[in-house]
C-alpha cells in the first residue's frame, strides 16, 4: 500500500506540475479502495485510450463519502460498497451511467447484477467491480480448536491475539449476527446489546485495523483476524498456516461497484474507464493481483488454475451465501447512532 501511496502521490504531484501547461490533456480522476487494482491496468488504460488516470485511495466508505459530497476533488469514477451507493443515490450524488458507452457490461454475471438491484434498482448507476464476504482468518498454529463461529473473536482465551475490523458497519454487523439479529438492525435495544458485546471485546483486541490486517496475519502477529474474503487467498498464499472461514451465524456479503459521482467533469472518460475495467482480460489481471472475487464471467472463464477457479473462498457455494446478508443504507439518523455507539466502544 505504501508503494502505491507513494506512486499516487508522485502521480498527483506530476499532474499538479503539468496541470497548467497542458490544459487539453485527457484525464480521468479515479477514487478507489486501498490496494484494490493492479497498477499495470492503469498503464494499459492510458496506452489504449490516451486518457491519463489520476488515482486516489480511501480506506473506508465513510471516509470517501464526505469528499464526494463536498466536491472537494472532481472525481470521475468511485468504487463504494453497496449500502454507500444506496446512500449516494438517495442523496442524488450520482449520474446515471450511459450503458451505450459500457458495452462490456455483458461480461458481468447477471446474477450479480440482480443482487446489485438491492441497492441500485434497475442497475442504472453502478457496475459491479468486486464482491465478497466478511469472515475470520485464523492461524492454524495458534488456534487448535475448530473455528466455525464468531464466538472465537469474543473468547478471552485469545486476548491480545485478535485483530478487529476498524469499520463501523462491519464491527456492528458481526456483533449483530452473532447475537442472532439482523445486521441491518435499526432497533436501539439490539444495537445497545451489540455495543455491550463489542465493549466486552475491546480489552481482548490487539488492534483495530482495515488494510493492515493482511500483513499482520501473514507475519503471525495475531491468531485471529476479521478480514474481507478477497484478502484471504493472498494471505493464504503468503502464509499457508492461515485459514479463512465464514462463521455459521452468517456474515455480510458485499459488492463494490463503480459509480460516476456528480463531481465528474468528464463522464465519457469515466464510462470509458468502467468499460475498460469490465474487459475480461483486465478483470482477470485485477483478480490475480488483488484476489478479490470478480463478478466478471469472462474473467472467471479465463482463470487457468482450477483450484482458484473453484475456490470456495473466492466463489463461495450457495449455502454459505444463504447465510450472508448485504448491508443496507439505514438513513442519516440510524447511521449516526451506529457511529455514536462505535465511538463509545473505541473511546473505552
Amino acid at each position: 500500500m505504501k508503494k502505491i501511496f507513494t506512486l499516487t502521490a508522485l502521480l498527483i504531484f506530476a499532474v499538479m506540475l503539468t496541470g497548467c501547461s497542458s490544459k487539453n490533456e485527457k484525464k480521468v480522476y479515479v477514487y478507489n479502495w486501498g490496494e484494490y487494482i493492479d497498477p499495470e491496468v492503469l498503464d494499459l488504460f492510458e496506452e489504449e485510450t490516451g486518457i491519463k488516470v489520476v488515482y486516489d485511495e480511501f480506506e473506508q466508505n465513510e471516509d470517501m463519502y464526505p469528499k464526494i459530497q463536498s466536491g472537494a476533488v472532481n472525481y470521475d469514477v468511485v468504487c463504494p460498497s453497496d449500502y454507500m451507493i444506496q446512500k449516494m443515490i438517495e442523496n442524488d450524488l450520482l449520474y446515471e451511467i450511459n450503458f451505450d458507452n459500457v458495452p462490456n457490461i455483458k461480461y458481468i454475471d447477471p446474477a450479480y447484477l440482480k443482487s446489485a438491484e438491492a441497492f441500485d434498482p434497475g442497475n442504472k448507476y453502478s457496475v459491479p467491480y468486486c464482491w465478497g464476504t466478511v469472515g475470520i482468518l485464523y492461524n492454524k498454529t495458534m488456534v487448535d480448536e475448530p473455528v466455525d463461529s464468531w464466538s472465537i473473536i469474543f473468547d478471552e482465551k485469545y486476548a491480545g491475539n485478535i485483530l478487529m475490523m476498524d469499520s463501523v458497519r462491519d464491527a456492528f454487523g458481526i456483533a449483530l449476527k452473532y447475537l442472532g439479529y439482523d445486521l441491518n438492525s435499526t432497533n436501539e435495544a439490539e444495537l445497545e446489546e451489540a455495543k455491550a458485546l463489542l465493549q466486552k471485546q475491546y480489552p481482548l483486541v490487539q488492534a483495530y485495523v482495515v488494510d493492515q490486517v493482511r500483513d499482520k496475519m501473514i507475519g503471525g502477529e495475531a491468531a485471529i483476524g476479521v478480514i474481507y474474503s478477497g484478502e484471504a487467498i493472498y494471505t493464504k498464499r503468503e502464509n499457508p498456516d492461515l485459514e479463512y472461514v465464514v462463521p455459521k451465524e452468517g456474515s455480510n456479503v458485499w459488492i463494490d461497484a463503480w459509480v460516476i459521482p456528480k463531481t465528474s467533469k468528464n463522464k465519457e472518460y469515466a464510462e470509458a474507464f468502467i468499460n475498460f475495467m469490465c474487459k475480461p482480460e483486465i478483470a482477470l489481471k485485477n483478480f490475480e493481483y488483488i484476489t478479490y472475487s470478480t463478478p466478471n464471467m469472462g474473467a472467471r472463464e479465463l482463470i487457468e488454475d482450477e483450484e482458484i477457479k473453484n475456490s470456495p473462498i473466492a466463489f463461495p457455494p450457495q449455502e454459505i451465501l444463504d447465510r450472508c446478508t448485504a448491508y443496507k443504507y439505514l438513513g442519516e439518523e440510524v447511521e449516526s447512532l451506529y457511529i455514536q455507539k462505535w465511538n463509545e466502544v473505541k473511546g473505552e
Binding site: 483486541v205 485495523v209 473511546g347
Partner: peptide, 13 residues
Amino acid sequence: GNKIVLIGNVIEQ
C-alpha cells in the same frame, strides 16, 4: 493500534 483514542484522533475522525 487504533485502540487508544486521544483528542487528536477524535478531531481527525
